[in-house]
Structure formats: C-alpha cells, structure tokens
Design a protein around this nucleic acid. Structure first.
Lengths: 144, 144
DNA sequence: TCGGTGCGTGAAAGTGAATTTCAAAGTTGT
DNA sequence: ACAACTTTGAAATTCACTTTCACGCACCGA
C-alpha cells in the first residue's frame, strides 16, 4: 500500500484517464508544503509566485480533485470558506477555533468510540464521519 | 426569569429602542410553530401564505435578530445554508445528518464535560461552544 | 516521434445564499 | 398627532464558488 500523496494522486488520475498537468503538480506540491486548513484565498497568491498564469478556477478544481482522490479532506467551519487539509494516516483529530485571533488548532479527542457506539445503539445510525468543533479563546489570546 | 421567547424578544427590542413590527411577530410565531433546523427557503413560502408582501431580506434580518436576542441559534452544516433552531432551556444536543435522505436528527452526547475538561487542560483553551456533527445513514434509510 | 483524441486551463460569466442600499412606510414616546 | 427614529421590500450587491467555452496540452498508439 502506497501512502505518498503524489503517488496516490498519480494512480487516481491514471485509473480514470485524467491527466497529470503542470498546474496540478504545482498545486499539489504547494499544498503538501504549506500545511493545514488552507482556503483558496490564502493559497492562491502563493501559487501565483510559482506560476503566475494560474487561474483561480484551477485551484478550486484541483483541491476538489485532491479531496476526491482521498489525499485531502474538505473542512468547513461555518464562515463560508472551504478549507483543505492533507489526509495523513494516523490518529483522527478535531479543531479548536479561536474566536479572538482566528487560529485553528488541532486536538485529539479520546473516548469518541464510546460516544459513537452509544449513538449507533440509540438511533440505529450507520456513522460515516464524526466531527467535533470547539470555539473559544486560545491560551495565546488569553494571556495577552 | 422569563423563558418565553416572545417575552424575551420583546424585552430585547425594548432595551435597545427597536420595534415590534407585524413582520417580526409573524416570523417569530411561525418560527416557534415550525420547529427546528429551518433555513430561509423552507420558511419563506410558508410565511408568504400568512403575509404575502413579506420580503426575504426581512426574514433573514429577523432570524438573525432572534439569534442575537438569544431565542434562536444559528446552525451550519456545511451545505452553505444557515439554519435556525429555537433555544430551549434544557439538555444540550447535537446533530445527526443522514447523507441519504437529508434528515437532521438530534441526539444527546453524554460525557462531553470530560472531553471539554481535557481540552482545557491540554490546550489552555477557554471554551465558548462545543459542537458535534455526525454524518451517516439513518435507521429509516438503512431498512429500506 | 508525430499526430489525434479528448481532458484541462484561464478568463469571464453565472450561481445562490446572504447582505446592503434606499426611499417609502411604520412604530413609539411625547 | 407629531417628530424622530427604525423597519420594510425591491433591487442591487457581495462573496465564495462553479460553469462555460475556446484554446492549449497531455498521453496513447502507430
């Protein structure tokens, strides 16, 4: 099994006759490098320094493609922006949103298996995803 | 202490010199009657049967006002729509979203106090709100 | 390696939810 | 009833994102 995002994407594209273009490659590299919770407007100016002709529609299209291929995940926090994060093997995480500075911090939530089990039992629901979102003030903002 | 939404709103408006208009009253009554997780497009046609001249901007404005006054809560599930639910005194709840039929079901999540405490401890975060969102297939859809 | 096929791209136009503008109408304290 | 606001509805605007369309480019096969 292959865990390298570039390799996963290459296979995903090949399997359905899609193409590995210069733009997709550049966007993928930047995405891997820049880290988490990016939305297009944070991302776009950086990409233009690497490839000035790139259009914003292409960035939207590519990030969506990354999500479809499984190497990225769409994250929405209700501010109207769609963010993307790299999918990594490992422990699931959720998000803390600081209402003062806007920072997004990840945290791990132990004991969710139990919660999920009780929901399945009480509601007969087949769970596909579970997401926790906390809003508050981060320690940085609290101490200043 | 007063728990009646109409009374809470009346006070909220009076305190800041805002007005109790026909439209606000109609929208509030319909909101109380129609239940939870409403978005404007579900709501608007129903309101028009009661008051055909009402404009959709007024509905948006009123629901937002209800949220500010504390009688309603904004809920966003990442589909681009803002929904509103009546705030009731009592146990907090979260939401199950059925990916097959779109139904939204409420559930209670025991043991969250513990999770919150561990987050405060690990991240020094002052929590303002905690929200859990589950996606999956509801029992109704599973059995058909 | 040289097309040909058909996917991908960029620019611009289009969407759809929500917000804002503005003139007219309504509400409230006096 | 009057003055001083606020609120309303319609239309225009905003904002993130998607779609369209003509041209460009990637990839396969000979």
């Amino acid at each position: 099994m292959q865990h390298n995002p570039k390799e996963i994407l290459r296979r995903y594209l090949a399997e359905r006759g899609l193409k590995i273009t210069r733009q997709r490659y550049i966007i993928l590299e930047a995405f891997i490098e820049l880290g988490r919770h990016l939305h297009v407007d944070e991302f776009y100016p950086i990409l233009r320094t690497k490839y000035p002709k790139i259009g914003h529609a292409t960035v939207y299209r590519s990030l969506k493609l990354f999500a479809e291929s499984g190497i990225a995940r769409e994250v929405r926090f209700g501010d109207g922006l769609t963010r993307y994060e790299l999918v990594t093997d490992g422990v699931r995480h959720d998000h803390l949103l600081c209402t003062a500075c806007g920072t997004i911090t990840e945290f791990e939530s132990p004991g969710l298996g139990q919660l999920e089990a009780s929901i399945v039992q009480n509601h007969g629901f087949k769970v596909q995803s579970l997401q926790i979102e906390l809003r508050g003030v981060c320690s940085q903002c609290l101490s200043s």
